[in-house]
Simulated assay, not measured.
Amino acid sequence: MRTETEGPSSVNAGQNLIDDFSLEMTGKDVPGLHEAQSLIPQGTRINVTFLGNEDLEMRVAAAKAVKEAGFIPVPHISARRLGSVAQLEEFLAALRDVGASDHVFSVGGDPETPMGPYASSLDVIQSGRLPEFGVKEVSIAGYPEGHPDIADDVLWEHLAAKTAALKEQGLDAVILTQFGFDTEPVISWIRKVRERGIDAPIRVGTPGPAGIKRLLGFARRFGIGANAMIVKKYGFSLTNLMGTAGPDRFINDLGALVAADDAAGDVGVHFYTFGGLSATAEWARKFQASA
């Protein structure tokens, strides 16, 4: 098994991993999308989040902007934020009307108590309404390091049920993971996914280049060891809190692990940009050209 310390082979593996990367934006990031447009390869998938402080019009407008810029919009559907069946149908119809309903990401969402009839992304998928509005592919969430509020056995049960339900409806599935900083739990989880007979493409969530303070802030959600983990994987000093860290080491390490594992299957990268579409796209361009 190669590691990042072995030089060019690891770098090449990292570059191969991000050949078809995807990005994330919010409804408010349309100006940032226009700014970054020339830096992002045409046909790139760009996820549009479903935030509680953004309305339907803003989400649909963002998905439309992604489509018109030559990219593939992947709007999020937050199950627990949907107040009714009609609200889901209204959102899907609006996406269809702007040509942005082919690809969606069905996720549970944050509210502790569901705001309507959907308690999980599985409920949305099993409703059967997605293909009625032109959906062809559904991304679903994966949790290599677990979920703070959901037991592991439930996560595995739902992952299997969602992929099975999508297959029954003739819909393609993509597994999009939470972001992390350590490659070992990710590759271990990928092996377990494949051992369960789930062959859907996996996009590993990866923090794009960001200010160190912001990265550390997000890292606190991952437990006490997160700060040390970032130091190890991102290679910077905690004493230099004004700098910016990129995911070079993480990508190279993960790429080498995936390349060495014949059972890993189709694995790519999804960048959480923290509002920095241009910074992430520019980093990806330089990283791919660095061989």
Rank of each mutant, 00 (worst) to 15 (best):
R2G: 04
R2D: 09
S10Y: 06
Q15C: 12
K28E: 12
V30S: 09
G32Y: 06
L33E: 09
L33F: 08
R45F: 05
F50H: 09
M58Q: 15
R59S: 12
R59L: 07
V60R: 09
A62W: 08
V66Q: 12
A69Q: 12
P73N: 14
S78Y: 02
R80A: 00
D97G: 00
V98H: 14
S101C: 15
S101L: 05
V107A: 00
D110K: 00
S120W: 02
V124G: 04
Q126K: 15
G128C: 12
S139L: 00
G142D: 10
G142S: 04
D152H: 06
D152Q: 14
V154T: 14
A164E: 15
A164L: 04
L171R: 00
L176T: 15
P185Y: 05
I187S: 13
S188Y: 01
W189S: 06
V193R: 04
V193L: 06
E195Y: 06
E195M: 11
E195C: 02
R196A: 14
I198T: 01
I198N: 08
A200W: 10
A200H: 04
G205F: 03
K213T: 15
L216C: 05
G223I: 02
G225S: 14
V231L: 06
K232Y: 05
K233D: 15
G235D: 04
N240P: 00
L241M: 14
D248I: 02
G255T: 13
A260E: 11
A263K: 15
G265C: 11
H270S: 10
F274M: 15
F274S: 08
G275R: 13
T280E: 08
E282T: 14
W283G: 09
A284C: 13
F287R: 15
